[in-house]
Simulated scan of single mutants.
Amino acid sequence: MSANAAGEPEIVIRDAGLDDLPTMAAIYDEQVGTSLATFDTEPRGAAYLGEKLASAGGSDIVLVARAGDEVLGYAYSGPFRPRPAYAGTKEVSVYLAVGARRRGLGRALYAELLARLDARPDVHTQVAVVALPNDASEALHRAVGFEQIGVLREVGHKFGRYVDTAWYQRMASGG
């Protein structure tokens, strides 16, 4: 394993594997209980992410960022809607462990995920949903080429209040 100049383990972004699921689930479930990054209200555990991993390699992608043995975050693409006419549109998300935020890791994960999606002729556009307010997530999405295309008012209800969501869209390179 290599290290950076500060002696910390190098961050590696790679396809997620079964051994990554427990830590990925812990990252997600922490977000369920503490933030609006997901509108789930109960922890989902590793089985939920196992379903995403099972569909990876086909039309979906699941990536993890690791430093040594530690999973710091993950990003994935999934179907936008189940109807065939939406097949060229992917919904994307990124989740980071508490200590891994605001270090550029979300941008690095998205860069790899979006590059892989851009390389596929069957993917035309990507969409992402951001609960509002969330300045950091909005800045991340703009930084990797998304533009806000609309806001749905009070469509979520979590932590005793109604929450707006902003929709972001990014056209695949050459799209």
Score class of each variant (00 low, 15 high):
V12Q: 10
S93F: 01
A128P: 02
S59T: 13
V163H: 07
A108D: 07
A46G: 04
T89H: 10
R170G: 06
A128I: 04
G106R: 05
V127I: 15
Y110W: 05
Y28P: 02
T41D: 13
G156D: 04
V62W: 11
A115Y: 08
G145I: 06
A115R: 15
Y95P: 02
Y28V: 03
V92G: 07
M171C: 12
G106M: 05
G33F: 00
A56K: 07
D69N: 10
A67C: 09
E70W: 04
A136T: 03
L49R: 03
D118P: 07
H157T: 02
V163W: 10
V151H: 00
G45W: 13
D60L: 04
F159E: 12
D19V: 12
E138P: 07
L117E: 09
L18R: 13
A108Y: 01
E147Y: 08
Y76L: 14
F39W: 15
A136K: 00
P82T: 02
Y162H: 14
A172G: 13
G68N: 10
L53G: 03
R102Y: 02
G150L: 08
D122M: 11
V71I: 06
A108S: 11
R116I: 08
G33C: 07
E91R: 11
V144Y: 04
I61H: 13
A115G: 15
E112G: 12
P9I: 02
W167T: 12
L117H: 11
R101T: 06
Y76Q: 12
R83T: 06
Y95Q: 02
A87P: 03
N134L: 05
A54V: 08
E91Q: 14
A67K: 07
A111D: 14
A65D: 00
P43Y: 09
P82H: 07
H141K: 01
V98A: 15
V155A: 06
A26T: 01
G73W: 00
V32C: 09
R101V: 05
V62E: 02
